[in-house]
Amino acid sequence: MPLYFFNLEGEAREEDETGTDFADVHAAQLEAIRFAGEVLRQEPHRLMHGPLRLEVCDSARAVRFVLDIGITAPGIAR
């Protein structure tokens, strides 16, 4: 099964050094959404300090897809 790397980027970058196997890119996408959900639920403060980006790369370290999560508040200056 192909290996995918899940790198988190917020205030700092957390590089996935080992990766995890998934059957295909769709399975990796479902896992990425669940994983991002866990991070949001368990570390909600992360989003208060700016957007969170989950970048998923394949075994050649090429970016396959990205989840961008952030707060938008039109009209309210930060």
Partner: peptide, 21 residues
């Protein structure tokens, strides 16, 4: 790692992340 995830209510990717940390 998958069994650890099933024990802790976490995705395998999250287990991998915290193990790395």
């Amino acid at each position: 790692q998958e069994q650890l995830g099933d024990s802790l209510g976490l995705t395998s990717v999250h287990v991998n992340r915290v193990l790395g940390r």
